[in-house]
């Protein structure tokens, strides 16, 4: 427990110090800003599509910090030292999901309010949007960390992670955006199910990938 807490605080401190956290947020807000330029100033159209757009932007923003999650630790030799100290890969993956959530999910969650305003979503729908993001972002983090572990040590892993993550994130995207429609009551349950499944599978899938990368 002590070791996991040390890794979590060190990772979050590193992301805050290096300023990494605001790049995805800036990207997220820019997409929300550019979308109205693309589809025009029709308020009704924007309000109808805005929620889905927030979700697409959040998904793309999740991709940005993936390449650093494990590659820094692998290059510095820290991953080997964790293994030698008998820290399990599964626990490390959970810690990385948590740190990804704090460093990148939380700022995105907060930035969703100005993004919703930019897209013309009425205040009445902010609650639903934030609720769906709060449920879906942990799932996205879990998928992202898993892909980061799978692509560890591959060349041009940035493009590869996008290619691998986006199809896997489709269910979360569908139910996340779907929960914003008027008949979206059941979608939020499906969103929670997808998010929880991703969280449950990620430690084992990513843990196996980390071991395979080390033994290569």
């Amino acid at each position: 427990m002590r070791a996991w807490r040390a890794i979590l605080t060190a990772d979050v401190a590193r992301d805050l110090r290096s300023g990494n956290w605001w790049l995805p947020v800036a990207f997220f807000l820019l997409v929300a800003l550019l979308f109205p330029f693309g589809v025009g100033p029709d308020v009704r159209l924007l309000a109808a599509t805005g929620g889905g757009m927030v979700w697409v932007a959040a998904l793309l923003a999740t991709l940005l910090p993936l390449d650093q999650i494990f590659s820094r630790d692998a290059a510095s030799g820290a991953l080997d030292q964790y293994a030698l100290h008998a820290l399990s890969e599964e626990g490390l993956v959970l810690t990385k999901i948590l740190s990804h959530l704090v460093s990148f999910g939380l700022p995105l969650f907060i930035a969703a309010i100005p993004a919703a305003a930019l897209l013309g979503l009425g205040e009445a729908r902010w609650g639903g949007l934030l609720c769906s993001l709060a449920i879906g972002l942990p799932g996205l983090s879990a998928l992202g960390v898993t892909i980061a572990a799978v692509t560890l040590g591959q060349r041009s892993h940035g493009a590869l992670s996008a290619l691998l993550l986006l199809p896997l994130a489709v269910p979360i995207l569908i139910f996340g955006a779907g929960s914003l429609s008027d008949a979206g009551q059941s979608a939020i349950y499906y969103l929670a199910a997808c998010s929880l499944s991703a969280l449950a599978i990620a430690p084992f899938a990513a843990g196996a990938a980390l071991r395979a990368a080390r033994e290569n």
Partner: peptide, 14 residues
């Protein structure tokens, strides 16, 4: 328990 020291110091360079 094993302690390994190789060419990588495993330290955060910043």
């Amino acid at each position: 328990a094993i302690g390994l020291a190789d060419e990588r110091a495993a330290l955060d360079s910043a």
